[in-house]
Design a protein around this nucleic acid. Structure first.
Lengths: 338, 338
DNA sequence: TTGTAGGCGTTATCAA
DNA sequence: TTGATAACGCCTACAA
């Protein structure tokens, strides 16, 4: 393990000069610069994160976090992952400014972002795909803030990293699983959050892609519940009543509890195979009651943890992420392996 | 964030004294000791891992690793996880001595352990549950070595940590999944590694527990293949020929490829639902050919990574593990979410 | 353009 | 029994 001091000694210059070369601070003669650079390459110099971390204590870096988690239990685990990681990193002087807001509103997000401006060194955000937000993200990036998009990407922006899942694959997996667990023919009713949400559309796309291969599987109806349980309850009830042939219910986003309650209200639980996403407490409850057969799980805790880890490594250890997309696998959860 | 220096100043003693108290090096008057201890408690002092890491560079800690990985592709991913993590920690001065051996032999394990004695500060081991090995593990622990058991526990020993899965639950999950994907009745043939291996016995136990709830599911035959593909091929062939009523094949350990080849040789692939463990390349191949329906996955990469992480945090950051068992979930993998 | 020196927090050695 | 000091690797302000 080579250190700056060693490089300096071997090049016959001071540590300061080597540091200037490494961190591109300028004010180094081209010759000495090249000398140092060659030595660095030759000895495969790598900065020691512990040294950096210690040195970084003087900055007290701050991470701004913006997540529309209020009223959406999926994010509870994401936030738990964030907070656990934050606690671990606190000792290094890394602090967080956590903003959990309710629902998806460009206006609200912009407001929080304005508040965070100038106060943070990194930003973790579950962004709306709105040009105004994209724009703000780019502004943060330009001002040197490290930006991680969480659970929903904004790849039109210049964010450094995305942590989340492959939504298309989530739908495909659900579709394949459904074909495994369904005896004979399936008439599928779909309840989705909103076709305005990219992730929901992609899941549906993946699901359809896999389902359409099988002539015994038909999608009978698709309704949107806006991720709201009451709306979900009404829409599901209506759907099942209008289409008594439905024997599979696929719930693509939130509102799982409302949909299940509708099934129970109609006493249809024994005639329906229900598939959903995520293991929020109410969903687990419905799995325990054998109402929901299986769900697709997107590692929410690890998503939160990973986002914080990336920020920590960048800000404190001076390590840039090795890849820009950190994708969690879509797992299949049944009651037994929750 | 309080530092040793601050504690020292507030107590009117030197940093050296505070360090002596914290690390219980003795040679401190009881009064000053209590003074310091109270201050530490009051200010909730927590050591800064970066400081420790920097200081630890002087020791150049070494991790011994002993895994019977040769000829067992399951461990390829475990080792990949170990090596990736080791690479990351190299810069901190942490080095590894990796011993990958072939097969499970107490003698061979003892030999390696003897070789490692005195050379290592931590040990990661996939141990045989033999009193001789347990004894050696305890010797290492007593001499101050941090010991992590990997993928197979030795909880009769005083090892610090176990990283692995819950085998009983793996079997239960497989059993539950099987009941979901099987139409009507199932006559199950089971190929297991060896009843001498605790993990295999536990998987079988969990599987039976779940299967026995359902009168339509019967276990027809159980054979052991000693984790060997050729043996697996022969035993499976024989089993299927002797029991033409078998319509489900459950492979509890290695030898998946051999078993599948037997099925193919008998041209039985369309009449059998096959379930197995782990996603080794040959198993994935069989999944792509639609011979194997699903497998239970035990996060091998993460197991290796986690074991190294625990060692790193202990040796370099001076952080003791928060729990003694680090259990990975049993995941269900189908072709789509591999 | 380059070098020096001090500090981040912890540990270890030596002197008192 | 205690204190002073240097070292781990990096960064930065200031001096040359």
């Amino acid at each position: 393990m080579v250190t700056i001091k060693q490089i300096a000694d071997l090049c016959g210059v001071s540590r300061g000069t080597v540091d200037r070369v490494i961190n591109e601070r300028g004010n180094v003669k081209t010759e000495t610069r090249n000398l140092v650079l060659n030595m660095i390459k030759k000895l495969e110099y790598q900065p020691n994160p512990a040294g950096k971390a210690l040195s970084a204590r003087k900055h007290n870096p701050v991470v701004g976090i913006l997540i529309p988690a209020k009223g959406n239990p999926f994010f509870d685990d994401v936030i738990r992952g964030i907070k656990t990681a934050a606690e671990k990193y606190k000792i290094y002087g890394l602090n967080i400014l956590l903003h959990s807001i309710r629902g998806y509103s460009t206006e609200a997000q912009l407001q929080i972002l304005a508040k965070l401006k100038g106060k943070i060194n990194a930003l973790i955000i579950n962004p709306i795909n709105d040009p105004l937000i994209i724009n703000k993200i780019n502004e943060f990036v330009d001002s040197g803030v490290f930006v991680v998009t969480l659970n929903n990407d904004a790849d039109e922006s210049r964010r450094h990293c995305y942590v989340g899942t492959n939504y298309v694959n989530g739908g495909e997996t659900a579709g394949a699983l459904l074909q495994m667990i369904t005896k004979e023919k399936a008439n599928i009713g779909i309840i989705m959050g909103s076709s305005k949400v990219l992730g929901h559309r992609q899941r549906l796309e993946g699901f359809k892609y896999n389902i359409n291969k099988n002539p015994d599987f038909k999608i009978v109806d698709i309704q949107e519940n806006d991720d709201d349980d009451i709306c979900s309850y009404d829409k599901t009830k209506e759907m099942i009543m209008h289409h008594p042939e439905i024997n599979v219910l696929f719930i693509v986003a939130a509102g799982v509890y409302g949909a299940c309650r509708a099934v129970l209200a109609l006493n249809k639980q024994d005639q329906l195979t229900i598939l959903a996403f995520d293991t929020v407490p109410t969903t687990v409850e419905m799995m325990k009651k054998h109402i929901i057969k299986a769900v697709i799980y997107q590692h929410p805790y690890r998503q939160g943890q990973r986002a914080m880890q990336l920020v920590f490594e960048y800000l404190v250890n001076g390590i840039s992420p090795d890849k820009s997309k950190h994708i969690m696998k879509n797992e299949i959860k049944i009651l037994e392996n929750l």
